[in-house]
Amino acid sequence: MIIFYFAPDIDECRTHTACQCDGCSCKNKWGGYECKCKGNRIYIKEQDACIERNGSRFGWFLTLVILAVVTASGIAGYIFYKYRLRSYMDSEIMAIMSQYMPLDNNQSNEAPTQSQPLRHGTTV
């Protein structure tokens, strides 16, 4: 024969051992309890406290400012790369390549003459 023994449920809400924070309401459950806070607040069981659900306005403002600074820095970095650094690197590459592959057709040791632009229908 098996005998089951059930311990009586302790009502923490009636004994005021749970949900002691301001603005808390307690609901007894079998084997425990549930606390709820009034308004737009949430209950933190470890601290037995109610806190605001929404973040502060200052927190949102600070987040938006940081996001704007990071975005502006990214755009400024891209513009710097695109126009200044890239043109500098291109000129350096051209200078290095011109040492190994001369860009003009003067292969002799003579002084280079001033080159004329090609006209349509003419050859060099």
Rank of each mutant, 00 (worst) to 15 (best):
I10C: 09
Q99E: 14
C50L: 00
G31I: 05
A76R: 09
N105E: 14
A95N: 08
N40A: 02
S73N: 07
W30Y: 10
C37R: 02
R57E: 11
T123N: 12
F6C: 00
I44M: 01
A68Y: 13
T113F: 14
P8F: 15
L85F: 11
N106L: 03
S87M: 11
F80G: 09
H16K: 09
I3D: 09
A111Y: 13
P8C: 04
Q47C: 11
D9N: 09
N109V: 12
V65F: 01
C13M: 03
K36C: 11
L118E: 10
E46L: 01
D104M: 06
Y81P: 04
R41P: 00
L62D: 02
F6N: 03
S56K: 08
G121R: 10
M94Y: 09
G39Y: 10
T122P: 06
C24G: 00
A72C: 05
T71Q: 12
A72V: 00
M94T: 11
L118Y: 11
C21P: 08
Y78I: 14
K36E: 12
E92Y: 04
T122I: 09
C50A: 01
A7V: 13
R84N: 03
K27T: 14
P102F: 08
D90A: 13
D48N: 07
I44E: 06
M97A: 11
T17W: 12
D104S: 02
I51F: 02
E52C: 07
T63E: 07
S91P: 15
C19G: 03
Y43P: 00
P102S: 05
E12F: 07
W30P: 02
M89G: 00
I75S: 06
C19N: 06
T122N: 12
K82Y: 10
T113H: 14
F58W: 13
C50H: 04
Y83S: 11
K82V: 04
A95Q: 09
I79P: 00
M1L: 08
L103H: 15
T122K: 13
L67M: 04
M94N: 07
N54L: 10
M101N: 08
W30Q: 08
I10S: 07
Y33A: 00
F6L: 07
T71H: 12
P102L: 04
N105H: 13
T113C: 13
T123V: 10
I10T: 12
F80V: 11
I79A: 08
G59I: 07
A49D: 06
W30N: 03
Y81H: 11
G39L: 05
G74E: 06
Y100W: 08
C35M: 05
S115V: 15
W60T: 12
A76G: 08
P112I: 11
M101S: 03
Q99T: 09
T123L: 13
C50G: 02
D90E: 15
G39C: 04
A76Q: 06
S91M: 14
E92S: 02
T15C: 00
T15D: 00
N40Q: 04
C24Y: 00
I96C: 15
A76T: 05
D48R: 01
C13R: 01
Y33R: 00
A18G: 01
I93H: 13
A18P: 01
I51T: 02
R119L: 14
A49P: 03
Q47G: 10
N40S: 08
I3E: 13
S73F: 14
T122G: 08
A95M: 04
D48W: 01
Y5I: 09
G39I: 04
G74I: 00
R41F: 09
V69N: 02
I79Y: 14
P102G: 05
V124K: 09
S91G: 13
